[in-house]
Amino acid sequence: MLPTPSTSHVCFDNVYEPAEDSYLLLDTLSNAHEVAFLTKRFDKNTPPPIVLEVGTGSGVVLAFVTAQSENIFGRRDVITLGTDINSFACRATAKTVETASKENASTSGIFSDTIIGDLTSPLRNNSVDVLIFNPPYVPTEELPDTSNQEHYNKLSSSTSTSTDAFERDSHLLALSYAGGHDGMETTNRLIDNLPSILRNKSGVAYILLCAQNKPDEVKTRIHAWGNGWTAEKVGDSGKKGGWEKLQILRIWQNLETG
């Protein structure tokens, strides 16, 4: 078992606390099957892969991938980046990743930065080799209104009233879980953009889904893109009452002949 990065410095009043879904991503990305896949696909003799985590929250997943770069990719020149719409999450992530990277200097890749932004919007097209997303996947009536996001991101705890801080924290936490219709409204926006943002032919995405997200429909939709686009389950949380609660889809262009 590779060590789980520490997030003890993070204030979880307004940043998503690592939970079963986060740990499922850690386990999946470091299991022998995925390590073999990633090590082969991003062979040492190719330029360093760029890893982007969308919605980093506490940063536990990005910190793990950065710190364990040698164990996951078989190389220490992997570059990692994170985005989150929540500025508190971005600051927390930077600290989590930098700490884990220092503590695992002999296996760590290169942490580039975290950026406040919506999904992949700050990134150049055709630039991401590995995209990781633990989405807001809980079905809800509607998505949180982000038109006032700047206001919430700037509201500092020291100068705001407790009512304001409570409203801000409720909003920021809602962003981490509320997924709208089928819990898929945000995830669908990200999936639709995958063929643009992932590096042509070699890019891979890992997306966590819950049963209510109708993962089979997601797979069918991706296969319908053609050009070798494939979505396969590569990790799950085990069966509870006959159905899998959480699973991780690997989405990539499978261009091997056959």
């Binding site: 971005c90 930065d113 950026i115 406040i116 932004g117 919506d118």
Partner: peptide, 10 residues
């Protein structure tokens, strides 16, 4: 504080 903000006004 070292972090870029790429959120766009609506």
């Amino acid at each position: 504080e070292g972090i870029a903000n790429f959120l766009l006004p609506s």
